[in-house]
Nucleic acid binder design. Structure first.
Length: 570
RNA sequence: CGGGCCGUAGCGCAGCUUGGUAGCGCGCCUGAAUGGGGUUCAGGAGGUCGCGGGUUCAAAUCCCGCCGGCCCGACCA
């Protein structure tokens, strides 16, 4: 490609509405443009990067024996009704009707469609299978943001494994785990694999591949000492024991005028420190109110509540609903004596005594609560959010909590979909058994953005060679100087015929403009061809990532550059 | 879905309070010089002021409605 003829609309100024680094740079360097909220066009540079990413994904998927498909993005609503997800996924699915009034939707993922194809698997001899595609997904996100990181239309590699038994699924899952490790590492980003909640996908186990970044929206807890890592939706920690000996042992109501919060009660004369308080939250789980109990200084993770109860919808109750359920307002709520509501408690409250909580009378609390004696807890679950500095549940080391971007997610689905859609095979004994499934996703544009989040500096993007839109730019300092232009073109041809992704910057621009653009776009190697160097029969090779520059003899320049690029291609 | 903010030239912005010929920087086009980190000079093109309605002699500016976008939070496979 000659830059002169390329569509690379770089901007001198940062776009005003871009906050995230990847958003700012991908727009400014001419990789993407927004069409509407959460919908982006990939420009030639952006498309080239995504092609590199999907190329790596294909190689690694093929390596684990996966077969590529191409499924429709337009789905009949019927099949989603069969799996039960038509009603579960809610407003996040784009839905429409065709001219006959038939429900149709745009695919947010393809479990249903691949599972339908799997109906043609008849015998255990047909298994195992791993099927995948690289396809556009549609999700009507409530709040698209951060450029291409969180969007409503995006490309996803999604694969699905089909096995006769649990052990086969374990193996397919492990192979995906290894493949994902290789994929992201080849893309030049470090990922942390974390335990995650399976959410509405269902299934028993899931692992997310996370890239640490402030632009990310997930919080993960990790232990530097032993490597434990989990999404805070799933993470736990070890808490120091609290000695309740000597605390008040009999129930005693007391007036607490003006006390509305945990902190108020801490400051209140005769109150209690947060770890001696019981926080009472009223949640509506699929339409029914329930009390959720936590220690005063702990925060609820709603996803844990959903996972623990199996509720699809879990929302805080409105003030009116709370008053109806308990007869008091938030700030004075408690579970003492509550028999007619589901009471769910966090494990950190188990066995505690001498606790203080609301009395279900406004501005009245009760002390001396013995959890086992006074509360009718129906279910115990881990519900609290871990905090940085708490002890690792495995080794006791201090946990760190940081933001990160989810670039991949792998699930063990089990038989949820095969049972819903009737996918069975005959096993060796001739019995019909549901196929055991797994599903595995990678966000392509999100991976591109994650690379930018990790690989950039003040001047622009710094692409790792394997995903760079071009590996080398040959910059002609002065294209009007014939010998310079010719030397540049020759070098360009030599690199091109060696299979290097090279672009020749032959624009009639000041050298500074061309250097700035090359840095902004992030091309890993720049060969500068100019009259000064040519006078010594030399050109300069500059490495983007550290700016290191070396003079090369013109005669050996192509060879040296090719070597450097191939070295980093992997 | 709640809160805040913003739509004026390709990009970044001023003008709106107090109604009266639509501006600036960068970019773009032409010419010249220049040529190793966003160079300089001269000339030029480019705007339904988000959309619709209203008030007015007159609306980018005031009023009403709508649409779109951004940020924070809620939510999220």
């Amino acid at each position: 490609m000659r830059w002169q003829h390329a569509f690379i609309p770089t901007l001198r100024d940062d776009p005003a509405d871009a906050e995230a680094v990847s958003h700012r740079l991908l727009v400014r360097a001419g990789f993407v443009r927004q069409l509407m909220s959460g919908v982006y066009s990939l420009l030639p540079l952006g498309f080239r990067v995504c092609q590199k990413v999907t190329g790596i994904v294909r190689e690694e998927m093929d390596r684990i024996g996966a077969q590529e498909f191409r499924l429709p993005a337009l789905h009949p609503g019927e099949i989603w009704k069969q799996s039960g997800r038509w009603s579960v996924v809610g407003e996040e699915m784009f839905r429409l009707q065709d001219r006959r009034g038939v429900d149709v939707c745009l695919g947010m993922t393809h479990e249903e469609i691949f599972t339908t194809l799997a109906l043609e698997l008849r015998s255990y001899r047909d298994l195992p299978q791993i099927w995948y595609q690289i396809q556009t997904k549609f999700r009507d996100e409530a709040r698209p943001k951060s450029g291409v990181l969180r969007v409503r239309e995006f490309t996803m590699k999604d694969s699905y494994s089909f096995d006769l038994a649990r052990s086969g699924l374990d193996s397919a899952f492990q192979r995906h785990f290894d493949a994902y490790r290789r994929i992201f590492s080849r893309c030049g980003i470090e990922t942390v694999a974390v335990e995650a909640s399976s959410g509405a996908m269902g299934g028993s186990e899931s692992v997310e591949f996370m890239v640490a970044s402030d632009a990310g929206e997930d919080h993960i807890a990790s232990c530097g000492a032993c490597g434990y890592a989990a999404n805070v939706e799933k993470a736990t920690s070890a808490l120091p024991e609290i000695d309740d000996e000597g605390s008040a042992s009999s129930l005693e109501k007391f007036a607490t005028p003006g006390v509305r919060t945990i902190d108020d009660l801490v400051a209140f004369e005769g109150g209690a420190p947060p770890e001696r308080q019981i926080k009472t939250l009223v949640y509506v789980l699929d339409g029914s109110p329930a009390l959720v109990l936590l220690r005063g200084d702990h925060a609820l993770v709603e996803q844990k509540l959903r996972d623990a109860t199996g509720a699809v919808e879990a929302r805080p109750a409105h003030p009116g609903e709370i008053r109806q359920a308990l007869g008091a307002s938030p700030g004075s709520l408690g579970a003492v004596g509550v028999r007619d509501l589901l009471v769910i408690a966090d494990l950190a409250l188990e066995g505690r005594r001498g606790m203080t909580t609301g009395a279900n009378e406004d501005e009245v609390h009760v002390r001396g609560v013995d959890v086992a004696r006074d509360l009718d807890v129906r279910a115990w679950h881990d519900l609290r959010e871990v905090r940085a500095g708490e002890a690792c549940p495995l080794c006791g080391g201090a946990l760190a909590v940081g933001k990160s971007i989810e670039v991949g997610h792998i699930f063990k689905l089990g038989t949820r979909y095969s049972e819903a859609l009737g996918v069975q095979v005959l096993d060796e004994a001739g019995a019909s058994v549901p196929i055991v499934m797994g599903s595995y996703g990678i966000g392509i544009e999100r991976t591109m953005a994650a690379v930018v989040e990790r690989c950039h500096d003040a001047a622009g993007i710094v692409w790792p060679v394997p995903v760079a839109p071009y590996e080398v730019v040959v910059t002609v300092v002065n294209p009007n100087d014939v010998p310079t232009a010719e030397a540049g073109a020759q070098l360009y041809e030599a690199l091109l015929s060696a299979g290097i992704d090279v672009i020749l910057d032959d624009r009639d621009e000041r050298p500074g403009v061309k250097f700035k653009d090359a840095d902004l776009v992030g091309i890993p190697y720049r060969v500068t061809v100019g009259p000064k160097g040519l006078a010594k029969k030399q050109v300069d090779l500059t490495r983007r990532r550290d700016g290191q520059s070396t003079a090369l003899d013109l005669s050996r320049a192509a060879e040296t550059v090719i070597e450097a690029v191939l070295e980093e291609r992997r």
